[in-house]
Design a protein around this nucleic acid. Structure first.
Length: 552
RNA sequence: GCGCCCGUAGCCCAAUUGGAUAGAGCAGCGGAUUCCGGUUCCGCAGGUUGUGCGUUCGAAUCGCGCCGGGCGCGCCA
């Protein structure tokens, strides 16, 4: 193994401008800085910076030597040594070359600590791009179920993550307030009203059987509403209000609620049809109007107007996305359940048809949620009354736990929601584990204040040097990198896992070292350190929509 | 039949998106703590990454074929 220590080389020109360079670089994420350094040496290459596996020497690592060696037909290990010898930077304490050809960087403690206590970074991977995320958009024909709850948790967290990383992101909820489903709803309610009046209810095919319809019917009867159109209106408002209330209770608020009917009112359905006509993208077959989606990459052409002159959901969806783009968004993200997976392609073709690039729209499929109790999955049938709703879930499990649990898996993973674990208020429950770390820190800080100990971020940085301290410093500094990864991948769970690890690292630190001691200088430094830890936990939980109490 | 997702320790899941000796938690066994919050920490044990080929310096990750599980595939939304 080769080690190049920059200090030993005593390169005075490198070190002369240390202060200046430090000020200039300090606001950039470490991983990005290393990328920039290597980019100067290899402008053509896609530089990849990894974390060094635990128990290995160094903090960050690059595989660039493998690629260069392959290109130039050189030996990887020697190439790595040569590259390593060319890199000098004040933040790098030492560079080492390992086995096949990894180049590892160890960041200097001094630099890490100065960075930790400098101004918080503003991350800007989004560069002000305007993104709209549409999610939940549950039909106003029944209560919000648990699958939608997951979409709500993911969507809201994503909006926050994207805004935190330099995008301008907003959320939207789309309401299907017209069309077949709402007609069936209205008729189902009318039948139930009839039943309340002593007749036999005849729920239409595809209608709604749930008991919640009976509650609604009682209300409608009370108000004396009889006209079917008025019933439809009332029923839709009833559910929308219910959705708003429960989502608010869940901590999810949308920037905008938009109704399908408003798309019609703006004339966008006709505009879109005219646009298709103009581009010769439609034709009539079997009395229906078809969109030539095959020409845009779909498997088959799709019907947009049925032979009995009804508009299909696809046409409406395209018109709705036309509306979204009219509102000056650079990109659109939709969060859908797996049952809608087959529609992605058609809609993206629609996006092209109205004149935007295919990747303007990205659809995230968030997989289903299964409830688990006593080690067994609870069967969720779509039959009336058997649906597990968000409301029911929130009656049993605290909001914070539900949010956290729903963000513990990657979007594409099926999620088993363990009700027994969720109910436990012990360290087995990861939400409390993370919150407890924060509360414990706050308790220590209160204790210090009672003793009249003042602390701030300006202390001699070489006081912090124990292994447990430095490990904590490093993991806190990774926070911004984690936010980038989570935002780039649209995966809040990356942040969830990070917070558990951060809490674990703190608990370990706490177990090994005392914060408040006889050594006043050290006490002040450690108070500053744990205070940064608490701030990071709080900031992370906030992005997940989970609260962060001072005491528990 | 076709499309998408998934398969990793007894259980539930990670693995920096192609990197180094595959890691946490739970369950099991054994320890720590006069103390700033014991809702904490440490150790032990646990693996042919469903399976077979292939791609390359390097594969849990990529490609093809099987096996197993889930969800879709309307002139419904």
């Amino acid at each position: 193994m080769f080690i190049y220590s920059q200090k030993k080389q005593g390169n005075s020109t490198v070190w002369k401008d240390y202060g200046e360079i430090l000020r200039r670089w300090i606001t950039t994420v470490i991983r990005q800085q290393l990328k920039d350094i290597l980019k100067k040496l290899f402008p053509e290459e896609n530089i990849i910076i990894d974390y060094v596996p635990r128990e290995k020497q160094g903090d960050y690592s690059t595989n660039i030597a493998f690629k260069i060696a392959a290109q130039k037909k050189m030996k990887p290990y020697e190439t790595a040594q040569e590259i390593a010898s060319q890199i000098h930077h004040p933040m790098i304490e030492s560079i080492s070359v390992h086995k096949p050809a990894f180049i590892n960087f160890t960041i200097s403690n001094d630099y890490l600590l100065k960075k930790l206590f400098s101004e918080p970074e503003t991350i800007n991977i989004g560069k002000g791009q305007k993104i709209m995320i549409e999610f939940v958009s549950a039909n106003p024909t029944g209560p919000i179920n648990i699958a939608s709850a997951r979409a709500a948790a993911v969507g809201e967290s994503l909006v926050k993550l994207l805004n935190r990383t330099g995008y301008e992101a907003v959320s939207e909820y789309y309401i299907n307030d017209r069309g077949r489903q709402s007609s069936l709803l209205a008729e189902s309610v009318r039948q139930r009203i009839g039943e309340l009046n002593g007749k036999t209810a005849e729920i239409p095919d595809g209608g709604y059987h749930g008991e919640y319809i009976i509650d609604l019917a009682k209300e409608v009867r009370e108000k004396g509403i009889e006209d079917i159109e008025k019933i439809r209106e009332y029923a839709i408002d009833y559910f929308i209000e219910g959705h708003k209330r429960i989502l608010q209770e869940f901590g999810v608020e949308f920037n905008n609620w938009i109704r399908e009917s408003s798309i019609y009112e703006k004339g966008y359905v006709d505009d879109v049809l005219a646009l298709f006509q103009e581009k010769n993208l439609t034709y009539v077959k079997d009395g229906a109007v078809w969109l030539r989606t095959t020409e845009l990459g779909d498997k088959e052409d799709r019907v947009i107007i049925t032979s009995d002159k009804r508009h299909t959901y696809l046409l409406l969806d395209i018109a709705y996305h036309f509306d979204k783009m009219k509102r000056q968004h650079d990109r659109l993200i939709n969060i859908w359940g797996p049952d809608h997976q087959a529609q992605i392609k058609s809609l993206q073709c629609g996006i092209i048809a109205i004149g935007y690039p295919r990747d303007t729209l990205e659809v995230l499929i968030v997989q289903q949620v299964h409830l688990k109790k006593a080690g067994k999955l609870i069967k969720m049938s779509k039959r009336a009354g058997a649906i597990k709703t968000l409301r029911e879930l929130l009656r049993q499990i605290p909001k914070d736990v539900v949010r956290f649990f729903l963000l513990m898996r990657s979007n594409s993973q099926h999620l088993d929601f363990d009700l027994d674990l969720a109910l436990k208020q012990s360290d087995e429950n990861p939400v409390y584990y993370v919150q407890y770390a924060h509360a414990r820190i706050k308790s220590i800080i209160r204790k210090a204040q009672e003793k009249g100990i003042e602390y701030n971020n300006s202390f001699a940085k070489d006081i912090i040097k124990k292994k447990e301290e430095i490990t904590l410093v490093k993991i806190i500094l990774r926070f911004t990198e984690v936010l980038e990864d989570a935002a780039r991948n649209y995966e809040p769970y990356i942040l969830t896992y990070y917070l558990i690890e951060l809490a674990r690292t703190f608990h370990y630190f706490y177990q090994k070292l005392r914060v408040i001691s006889e050594d006043e200088e050290l006490t002040r430094a450690r108070l500053a350190l744990i205070n940064r830890t608490a701030e990071t936990i709080k900031s992370g939980l906030e992005l997940l929509g989970v609260s962060c109490p001072e005491r528990m």
